[in-house]
């Protein structure tokens, strides 16, 4: 029993760390632009397919090392272009936040069906980053899980560092806290919006590679990820990065324990119940402001 709980806890921790990596990106976009990117889950899948294309048909030298190395600039550019080409033209409208939601919802459908058209409707599995197990006392851990945990944690630490120690990171926070103030000190909003989309797309793409190699690439799997990311963002407090960090780990644990005790079929209901109860008691979420 005790051993089992440790295993469930570890699985919650690992999933939580990847969720945190992805949800923080989505929260950042919301915090800065006040618009919600509903195509976020489809970019998660883009991560999966990106890795699949490089590893299987192309058989890239260096394996996952090359995949991550190329994924960072690739997703940065994809996110940047997403904002510049599709989002930015909408910003001249008063209700552009609503228009962005509709656009990204459409984009998400387009991408999901695009994946089916290009890669076929069947799920694809990726080779594991690393095989084998480690034994700590009586607990057996997969090396793969340890790598996922370390990579998503380092991803988050990088993000945290960039946000708090670089001029652009501080400018991103400034726009999130007070757009008018940011404009006054001369922060170019256009650049910051595009940078925010670029960073968040990079994070979700990275998370997609990590989780898809653990599970599989499912062309219709984006909805599930989108719901998770949305629940974490709302539960943690819209726009609060610290809130979504906590929320991601709570959700990871909840999933693991509910799945273990009641069965996987109850996981989605449990997470949505958690969200509804939280929002009923505390509409601004765990750490949302105002």
């Amino acid at each position: 029993m005790f051993l089992e709980i440790i295993e469930v806890f570890t699985s919650g921790l690992i999933n939580g760390s990847v969720y945190a990596l992805m949800a923080v990106g989505l929260t950042l976009v919301y915090g800065v632009t006040k618009a919600f990117n509903f195509a976020y889950g489809s970019f998660y899948n883009l991560g999966g397919y990106f890795a699949w294309v490089l590893l299987i048909p192309l058989g890239v030298i260096g394996g996952y090392f090359s995949v991550f190395f190329m994924a960072i600039p690739f997703f940065f550019i994809v996110g940047y272009l997403l904002e510049k080409v599709l989002i930015s033209p909408l910003r001249k409208y008063d209700d552009w936040e609503m228009k962005v939601m509709m656009l990204t919802l459409g984009l998400s459908l387009f991408m999901d069906f695009g994946y089916q058209a290009i890669f076929g409707p069947r799920i694809k599995s990726l080779p594991g980053i690393i095989e084998g197990t480690v034994q700590v006392g009586e607990v057996v851990l997969f090396q793969q899980d340890i790598v996922i945990f370390i990579l998503s944690l380092s991803g988050m630490l990088c993000f945290w560092w960039i946000l708090n120690n670089t001029r652009t990171g501080m400018a991103v926070q400034a726009v999130a806290q007070n757009p008018a103030g940011a404009q006054i000190v001369g922060i170019p909003k256009d650049f910051i919006f595009a940078a925010t989309f670029a960073i968040s797309t990079m994070m979700v793409g990275f998370g997609g590679i990590l989780l898809c190699q653990k599970n599989f690439v499912d062309p219709m799997g984006s909805t599930d990820i989108m719901i998770k990311a949305w629940v974490i963002t709302a539960f943690g407090g819209m726009g609060s990065i610290r809130g979504s960090l906590y929320a991601a780990f709570i959700l990871g644990m909840l999933e693991a324990f509910v799945g273990w005790y009641f069965g996987m079929i109850h996981v989605q209901i449990a997470t949505l119940t958690l969200l509804l109860v939280t929002l009923a008691i505390r509409p601004r979420g765990l750490m949302g402001r105002e």
Partner: peptide, 26 residues
């Protein structure tokens, strides 16, 4: 050319020092 707003427009969750440093963003 800089505007100093009547309603201040500070960055509320940043420290005094961080606000000043962002003043020199340009």
């Amino acid at each position: 050319v800089t505007y100093i707003a009547e309603n201040r427009e500070l960055f509320p969750y940043m420290t005094v020092m961080e606000n000043l440093k962002l003043g020199a963003y340009s």
